[in-house]
Design a binder for these strands. Structure first.
Lengths: 134, 134
DNA sequence: GGGCAAGTTTACGTTAACGTCAACTGGTCA
DNA sequence: TGACCAGTTGACGTTAACGTAAACTTGCCC
């Protein structure tokens, strides 16, 4: 039951397709905090989860700082009323921002779909011109 | 009818809340191409539209290069069959990427909603503790 | 025990996307 | 005419997010 799965740095690098340099960099920035066996890093389940979130944030276009802010919401430090109250407003802010970003992406997709339509129409016109030469 | 609206650099800067430096930088990178009156820049409707797309792309987390690629799809240069064929596959690629990005954002939002629930539950527990001291 | 792979630290390099001067050029308005 | 804009070019500075290279340690295999 105490079999907490661990990972080496190259385990994680392979699984998430990043370089070991990247992982060390994330640690340097305080985004990951592996324990040590001698001088070798040992990553646990939490680091695994955090890395996943970081990369998801990256794909979503967030900076590391923004990702960190979100990730830190997952394991809050204090446990008093004000803390949670504050965290709630933070969550709301982030969520609002993400949703507006989501709208922007939807608009971009919509725009591309119009381009696509104009494009296929143009292809049709080439295939069978609307106004034949008579 | 020929009243093509134009903008000065600070018109655009104001409207889109960016600095003039940013706009010049975008021109330098070939994303905008204003005409000139002497040495002063004159921006037209197309530049206006392009700037809007650039900033939308930015908010969506795209790099300038990625935005440029998308924007360039709006006014294709060639007009032959292969061009459109190629453009169509490009559009598809971009769209797929944007949609996966959209999924990542949805996941982030979902995650935050869980945090929110844990958070409000914790707040409730503080207000009226589940296990009273007996 | 010699070499090899995997890991470590330190340090400098790089790219994107601007910010921040500095020095100059026209207009215009009192 | 002189002062004050808005605008221009040019150059260097800055931050984020790693890449890359060098020099070293450690465990393991033959």
């Amino acid at each position: 039951m105490g079999e907490d799965k661990t990972y080496t740095i190259s385990d994680l690098a392979r699984e998430f397709a990043v370089t070991t340099r990247t992982i060390r960099f994330y640690e340097e920035k305080g985004l990951l905090s592996p324990s040590r066996n001698g001088q070798h890093r040992i990553f646990g389940k939490q680091d695994h989860a955090r890395l996943e979130l970081i990369l998801r944030g990256k794909r979503a276009g967030l900076s590391l700082e923004e990702s960190r802010e979100i990730i830190d919401m997952y394991d809050p430090e204090g446990d008093n009323y004000k803390q949670y109250q504050f965290l709630l407003t933070k969550v709301d802010e982030r969520q609002a921002q993400l949703e507006s970003q989501l709208e922007d992406i939807k608009l971009l997709i919509k725009g591309l779909q119009e381009v696509r339509e104009r494009c296929t129409r143009a292809l049709n016109d080439i295939a069978r011109p609307r106004a034949a030469k008579q």
